[in-house]
Amino acid sequence: MLQNGHAIPIANTANNNNNNVFYEANGSYSPLTTCNGWTNRNLKNSGLPAVV
């Protein structure tokens, strides 16, 4: 999601290193819809090379 044309970061409250950055987004994660599937679907939708 964008605010003034920029991605909206979410505060990282997890107990891990500070190298992670999270952003607002549409959709959700599940074992059947992983980040790999989401990325591949959006590559296809944009016309860029993607897995079949």
Rank of each mutant, 00 (worst) to 15 (best):
N42T: 01
P31C: 00
N19C: 09
N19F: 08
A11N: 07
R41A: 14
A11P: 09
L32V: 05
A14M: 12
P9M: 03
T33V: 12
N26M: 10
T39Y: 13
P31Y: 01
I8T: 12
L43T: 02
F22I: 00
N45L: 15
F22N: 03
E24D: 11
G47P: 15
I8P: 08
N26K: 15
C35N: 13
S28N: 10
L32E: 14
N17T: 14
N12M: 01
N16P: 00
V52E: 13
C35T: 11
R41C: 00
I10D: 00
S30F: 04
W38G: 02
W38E: 05
N20I: 06
N19D: 14
N4V: 05
V21C: 03
Q3T: 09
K44G: 02
W38L: 10
T33K: 13
R41N: 11
N26A: 12
I8K: 15
P31K: 07
L48V: 05
H6S: 15
V52Y: 05
N36W: 11
N16Y: 07
N36H: 06
G5K: 12
N45C: 04
N17A: 08
N12P: 11
N15R: 13
N12R: 13
G5N: 02
G27V: 09
R41W: 06
T39S: 08
A7S: 12
S46D: 02
W38Y: 14
A14E: 10
P9S: 01
T34D: 02
H6R: 15
G27I: 05
N45M: 12
V51P: 08
N17L: 02
W38M: 11
A11F: 04
N18G: 02
P31N: 06
S28G: 07
Q3I: 09
N42S: 07
A11E: 14
A50D: 01
